[in-house]
Design a protein around this nucleic acid. Structure first.
Length: 501
RNA sequence: GGCGGCGUAGCCAAGUGGUAAGGCAACGGACUGCAAAUCCGUCAUUCACCGGUUCGAAUCCGGUCGCCGCCUCCA
């Protein structure tokens, strides 16, 4: 079995992935704080780790991979949102967990093995904090409990910082109860109007970082194989998780730290605070989910990904091409009495060779730190070869070519199972696209079909002028026609949809 | 200031020592009544810039410039 290589933030190098136990691979990914609708940045993280999950499942077996992704359902922003709307925090978290799940489901992400919430593990959190206090790594102060960074000499190993660096760059006023400005809250004392849970130090709620340590160890293992999340979580969140966990267990918390890059807009990070975000829901109202997924996989997961409408246009067009070939491959069949000339057989053998190469390149690319862009490139190489031999593939192939059919369908299966692209039929994708696009442009499909019928009638009478007038008129509103022996089909030009963004 | 990342054709984007994948666009051709789709061909002697190492560098080293991120909540 070939190996998987992953870039490990902890060592800043590409490393061969070796799970602690191949029978039980454990991956924990930091999920969203549920106080607002998910945006494209959240979608990127979900899709990236979905691809990793799918790859791990293929390599180690579906049931050998445990993927944990949490929901942070206790947090300042959630409380603020609840107060703002005069509702319980549960109403907020319920709404946005549903929104998140709807978004990632639409994007074709598999559900994680388990999706725990902070509120489900309160007792485990207070237990863990108590263990930290017992270990001399945390202290109580005025109803709060803080982690004592000086008790963990390795602090900073993930983000490559030292305590000295950090002390000199304090940008906010530290809590006076802290012994050191680097110390961080494990437990916050209850304040009026905020939800609270009982604890040995009085009512309160957990700090941000402790929840992940606890959920990862409770639902996963004391030592995780993979811990993932966005680049912005490296410091302080993941750094603090390591400190809290290892100060108690004295074991490595996570062996491979995997971080995805940001989605950017105009070269700036897409974020709530900058207000430059596009929610997944908004985007899905104009673009097929497949388009968004393709776009998110078109660059390497650690690179910044600049979002602009042109990127969605390109992704949609690339999918047109992919789906076209997929439809052809799906229809492939063999028949005992089918025959081919020597020359045709030779050309089919060449196609088989190229398909084999694409399969290998695709697999190697994914195993090489999830190089989805290169994997897609490999698929397109076979797409071209399939198209150029399309005439040879429409009729049943001789049974001697069964292996070719198998290869092509295997490559398509890789695309579907590993990347979750081209999962549906081409016809459904084109129909979905036209529906979204006509709605976005305010076009009436019935009227388009009526015009096409009129043009077909004109063509039957060889009235080319009339025929071309109709076609040109449709084209100027963004509708492209395609004549075929089976009739005329139409498709909205993605450029026109982007133009309205 | 500390830590980290990025800079490859008109646009997007692979490629981390052996002579520039792939997608979109553009141009020429085939096919077509004309188109579209598809196919063929053209499209970076060059990888921000300057030095160095090497038989050989987009890839390694040093420096310069530009952009971005983290150091406060953030995927």
């Amino acid at each position: 079995m070939q190996e998987i290589r992953l870039y490990n933030t902890l060592h800043r190098t590409l490393e061969t992935f070796e799970p602690l136990d191949p029978e039980q691979v454990v991956m924990y990914v930091c999920g969203p704080t549920v106080y607002d609708d998910p945006h494209l940045g959240h979608a990127r993280a979900a899709v990236v780790f979905d691809v990793l999950f799918r790859l791990l499942r293929r390599v180690y077996g579906d049931h050998a991979v445990r993927y944990i992704r949490n929901y942070t359902d206790v947090d300042d922003k959630i409380i603020a949102r609840a107060n703002e709307r005069g509702v319980a925090i549960e109403a907020i978290t319920r709404q946005y967990i549903a929104a998140y799940e709807e978004a990632v489901d639409a994007l074709g992400c598999l559900r994680p093995t388990v999706s725990p919430r902070v509120t489900e593990v309160m007792e485990r959190i207070t237990d863990w904090i108590q263990q930290l206090i017992d270990a001399g790594a945390a202290y109580e102060a005025g109803g709060c409990v803080f982690f004592d960074v000086s008790a963990f000499p390795e602090y900073g190993k993930l983000s490559n910082r030292t305590a000295d660096d950090l002390v000199t760059t304090q940008r906010i006023e530290p809590d006076p109860r802290k012994r050191s400005p680097l110390d961080f809250a494990l437990w916050k004392e209850a304040r009026p109007g905020e939800p609270e849970w009982p604890s040995p130090w009085g009512p309160g709620r957990p700090g941000w970082h402790i929840e992940c340590t606890v959920m990862a160890t409770v639902y996963g293992r004391e030592t995780l194989d993979i811990h993932g999340g966005g680049l912005d979580l490296i410091f302080p969140h993941h750094e603090n998780e390591i400190a809290q966990c290892e100060a108690v267990t004295h074991h490595t918390f996570a062996r491979y730290w995997v971080h995805n890059g940001f989605v950017r807009i105009n070269a700036e990070k897409m974020s709530k605070s900058l207000g430059n975000f596009f929610t997944v829901g908004d985007l899905l109202s104009r673009w097929p989910a497949q388009t968004l997924r393709y776009f998110l996989l078109s660059a390497h997961y650690r690179s910044p990904l600049d979002f602009h409408p042109g990127g969605l246009v390109e992704s949609t067009k690339a999918l047109f091409r992919l789906y076209g070939a997929a439809a052809l491959i799906d229809r492939l069949q063999t028949a005992p009495d089918a025959e081919r000339t020597t020359k045709q057989t030779h050309r089919l053998a060449e196609l088989e060779r190229i398909a084999k190469q694409s399969i290998e390149t695709f697999d190697a690319a994914l195993r090489d730190d999830l190089n989805t862009a290169r994997a897609l490139g490999a698929v397109f190489e076979t797409v071209r070869e399939v198209n150029r031999r399309a005439a040879l593939l429409t009729d049943p192939l001789p049974t001697a070519q069964a292996e070719l059919v198998e290869r092509l369908q295997f490559l398509l299966a890789r695309l579907r199972d590993d990347l979750a692209l081209c999962t549906g039929s081409a016809a459904d994708f084109f129909a979905e696209w036209n529906q979204l696009a006509t709605a976005a442009l305010g076009l009436d499909p019935d009227e388009i079909n009526r015009q096409i019928a009129e043009r077909t009638a004109a063509r039957q009478q060889r009235d080319w002028a009339r025929s071309d007038d109709i076609r040109d008129a449709l084209a100027s509103s963004g509708v492209l026609l395609e004549d075929s022996p089976d009739g005329t089909i139409w498709r909205v030009d993605p450029e026109y949809v982007a133009g309205r963004d």
